[in-house]
């Protein structure tokens, strides 16, 4: 490609900041994490942390983290896709898109507190349920509230890449499909969705992977009824000061992430 013809020096200069960033802020921290994972809590070299990871406690935690992350991603996608699609149809679409992002600039902790207020026993949500004649429910500290708030937090990150790829769709393609007599559903399934799959993929990546390691919300909204790998890492780093175990869990998270990336990237689009 075009770069081949350039001499090596300019090419390297060009890449320097990014590679420096990778070396300093990605590789160095990974090595640190890996290094710490081989030390037990008293600072002796050992593999005990890895052994501990394969005990039922941590396996169960891994499983439940996956389950919640999956639910959060799936629901985000289900809501984000139609939202992004409809946004591309609006008149001032870039403005509406910005308005989707703006709420995420308000501090997360504050929004969590607002949700505690909304979902509480005497909160707005329950007043509404009472009004509807359903009666007061426990909403706070349930799976529902946890998933709801997580989806709320992540949804802009899902909408944005999907919106971008939908926005790039060539309208003539859709007209063509229409002219060929494809139904709306077929057009979506055979034309629109495959062409926006990259946006969906990057959306899923930026939601699923952080969702695996959520921590603040597990306490504030789920009252520690949901324990994820992130919660546990936070505890190990900040409370127990067992950096070894915390790092070990982090190592597994990194491995999981790499696996996910490789799997989602190998099925290359055939367009």
């Amino acid at each position: 490609m075009w770069i081949q013809m350039e001499n090596k020096l300019t090419k390297n200069l060009y890449l320097f900041p990014y590679l420096l960033w990778i070396a300093l802020f990605v590789i160095a921290p990974i090595l640190l994490v890996l290094y710490y994972s081989f030390f037990d809590i008293e600072g002796n070299l050992s593999l005990i942390n890895y052994q501990k990871f394969f005990t039922p406690v941590y396996l169960k935690m891994t499983f439940s983290s996956f389950w919640y992350a999956f639910l959060i991603t799936a629901i985000s996608l289900l809501i984000a896709y139609p939202t992004a699609y409809l946004l591309t149809k609006t008149k001032h679409k870039q403005l509406w898109l910005l308005l989707i992002i703006v709420p995420s600039w308000i501090n997360l902790l504050l929004k969590a507190y607002a949700f505690i207020g909304i979902f509480g026993t005497y909160g707005a949500a329950n007043s509404f349920l009472n009004l509807m004649g359903i009666g007061s429910q426990q909403i706070l500290f349930t799976d529902f509230s946890f998933i709801f708030v997580s989806v709320y937090i992540f949804i802009p990150f899902m909408i944005l890449p999907i919106f971008n790829s939908l926005n790039e769709l060539n309208p003539t393609l859709l007209d063509a499909a229409n002219d060929l007599g494809a139904s709306k559903w077929t057009t979506f399934r055979r034309v629109i969705f495959p062409l926006t799959i990259d946006g969906v993929k990057s959306g899923c990546q930026v939601v699923f992977i952080p969702a695996l390691s959520l921590f603040m919300l597990t306490r504030l909204i789920a009252g520690n009824r949901v324990i994820t790998l992130g919660t546990s890492i936070e505890q190990h780093f900040l409370v127990t000061q067992d950096w070894g175990m915390g790092s070990t869990i982090a190592v597994f998270l990194i491995i999981i992430m790499v696996v996910i990336m490789v799997v989602t990237n190998t099925r290359k689009r055939g367009v």
Binding site: V33, F215, F237, G246
Partner: peptide
């Protein structure tokens, strides 16, 4: 990696 790493780490 930084996107997936928990903030604490």
């Amino acid at each position: 990696i930084l996107i997936v790493s928990p903030d604490v780490i």
